[in-house]
């Protein structure tokens, strides 16, 4: 490893006085500002093409290696899942009423979000994403708006699915909590259910 390795075809003499490192920086800057002495030099163009190829192979290397990775057995995944706790996602404490002054009864916000997810998922063709309880859930009687992100599978009617999601969530919240539900907003964000994120076909219903 030495600075002195000569790279045939990529030395300043071949690059009209430029260095490979300058060209790398130029590429990184998006070839801006435009440099006529680089752009008009065939040597520089060849070298930049080589740099771009190298970068491309570097990027695809990991993806290829990830595919080649020996499949991890379930104990590896279990090793991770065994070490995570509920606390980070427990959220706020939602009071449950009781006549006794010694009683401090609560549902965690995390438990209620889990309930909402399960209710929404029970609707055919729907997968619930993130959900939010808007309003001060720690105060009894406070009006709460439920915001739910959902994916609807192709072939299902979006407004119908959203209506059924709302009904299912409302029924469960009524059964298990004492929350005062002001509204349930369902945002359908992706009807493809594909792994690519790309286009966000958001459609707000309510």
């Amino acid at each position: 490893m030495s600075d002195e390795i000569a790279l045939e075809g990529f030395e300043p003499a071949d690059l009209d006085g430029h260095t490979i490192d300058e060209l790398s920086d130029y590429l990184e800057a998006g070839c801006l500002p435009f440099d006529p002495s680089i752009e008009s030099s065939p040597g520089c163009q060849i070298a930049m093409a080589a740099l771009i190829r190298l970068r491309g192979v570097s990027l695809s290397l990991l993806e290829t290696e990830a595919i080649d990775e020996p499949a991890r057995d379930d104990s590896w995944v279990a090793g991770i899942l065994n070490r995570i706790g509920f606390e980070a996602q427990a959220g706020r404490s939602i009071p449950v009423s009781h006549p006794s002054a010694q009683a401090f009864l609560t549902l965690t916000e995390g438990a209620v979000r889990g309930l909402i997810r399960a209710a929404g998922d029970s609707v055919t063709g729907v997968l619930i994403g993130r959900c939010r309880l808007q309003g001060d859930v720690t105060v009894p009687g406070e009006p709460i708006t439920v915001l739910v992100d959902a994916s609807v599978f192709w072939g299902e009617s979006i407004p119908e699915a959203a209506a059924r999601v709302r009904e299912a969530i409302y029924a469960e919240l009524l059964k298990h909590t004492e929350l005062t539900i002001a509204a349930i907003d369902v945002v359908i964000h992706d009807v493809h259910l594909s792994r690519s994120l790309g286009e966000d076909a958001a459609e707000e219903i309510e």
């Binding site: 509920f86 010694q102 009683a103 401090f104 609560t106 965690t108 309930l115």
Partner: peptide, 13 residues
Amino acid sequence: ETASIAVKVARIG
């Protein structure tokens, strides 16, 4: 004397 009894539901279903 019982000062308090706290019951927290962390999971439903």
